[in-house]
């Protein structure tokens, strides 16, 4: 079971690490093991708890990018009415759909298998280091210099991301089913590889994360409301509130940070944190 204290700590951690490219699930697994908590990433009560924190994070993202979503939904409606994808909002809407389909299908197919295989803190530490390598590699292979551009970010994303690239970025997100790899890290890295700047890659990653996190939370909502949620609903509510607060602060911080900064600090952090955790768990 999970205590209220643990719910607060894990909720605060979840909100930050879901949006920072550092793997929320990996951090939850590693922290629980470091603190000697009897919480498995595969246990029913923890998965139920995650539903609440994910739902809170998705709500924060939806609220933060509300004006973008209004434009995107209107663009989607226009494209369906006119039977053509004529403007950047409509194109961005369909790019998000194209990216979400492989992410959703791979998530549905692989979630249980991957989570049940890679549940240990040792494997999460190794994958956290590999996440650092992935972030650093994306920075090395980026196609556009990290300059601060003027103009509409959504228009730039719609212009620079192609259909196959959107599908590939969406599919890359499913690597986050392995504790230690980051969903936002995979999509931000993918964004850099297709020619986006850091700030545009972060924006695309957050827009892309919203429907996926919402869908995953809604799919598991019956667990929270059913018998699996008995004894964990109060803790989930507390964790969700904590998660919402830190998720808001995280997205606000990152949307300023990436105007002038790169993924490199997160890559270095993942390499060091993963290495130190690995040493601790194998010694």
């Amino acid at each position: 079971m999970i205590s209220y204290w643990q719910a607060i700590v894990l909720g605060l951690l979840q909100g930050v690490s879901e949006l920072f490219p550092i793997s929320s699930l990996g951090h939850s697994v590693i922290l629980a093991q470091l603190l000697g908590w009897n919480i498995s990433a595969n246990s029913n009560f923890f998965l139920t708890f995650l539903v609440g924190t994910h739902f809170a994070t998705a709500l924060v993202l939806l609220g933060f990018f509300w004006s973008d979503w209004v434009r995107i939904v209107k663009g989607l409606g226009r494209s369906l009415r006119d039977r053509e994808i004529a403007d950047p909002d409509a194109r961005l809407a369909w790019l998000l759909i194209v990216a979400t389909i492989p992410a959703g299908i791979l998530g549905l197919a692989l979630e249980h298998k991957l989570r049940s295989v890679f549940t240990s803190a040792t494997s999460a530490s190794i994958f956290l280091m590999l996440n650092g390598v992935m972030l650093y590699g994306a920075e090395l292979l980026r196609r556009r210099a990290p300059v601060d551009e003027v103009g509409d970010a959504d228009e730039r994303i719609a212009e620079r991301v192609g259909w196959p690239q959107a599908g590939a970025i969406g599919a890359a997100q499913s690597i986050a089913l392995i504790p230690g790899f980051s969903r936002s890290g995979a999509s931000m890295g993918g964004g850099l590889l297709v020619g986006l700047t850091n700030i545009d890659a972060a924006r695309f990653a957050f827009l892309l994360a919203t429907p996926i996190i919402f869908a995953a939370a809604i799919l598991k909502l019956p667990d929270l409301l059913g018998s699996t949620g008995n004894g964990v609903r109060g803790q989930t509510l507390v964790g969700a509130i904590c998660s919402a607060v830190t998720a808001y602060l995280a997205v606000r911080f990152l949307m300023r940070f990436f105007h002038t900064n790169r993924l490199t600090p997160f890559a270095i952090y993942c390499l060091i944190a993963g290495f130190v955790s690995l040493l601790y768990f194998v010694s």
Partner: peptide, 8 residues
Amino acid sequence: KHGIAAFL
């Protein structure tokens, strides 16, 4: 989940 995937 199979149903959701097929539907999508």
